[in-house]
Amino acid sequence: MGKPRVANDIRRLRFEHDEMTQKQLAEIVGVTRQTIVAIEKANYSPSLELAFLIARAFKRPVEDVFSFIE
């Protein structure tokens, strides 16, 4: 399995939302903080369900949070 081809803007969105911490975001979407870290670093691609939960946490559409690397 190569490096995931999904980029994201989670770090910037966290800071825009009252400087939300990784732990707070993890608790909101129901995963561990380490998973949020891996997603932010684009080392792990979240499932569709998790991607939607993260986007909903920021009140943004999924396309605003995640993008596909060609």
Partner: peptide
Amino acid sequence: PSFLIDERDRM
């Protein structure tokens, strides 16, 4: 301490 097991853990 958290005992949460999420999708990345399962993967």
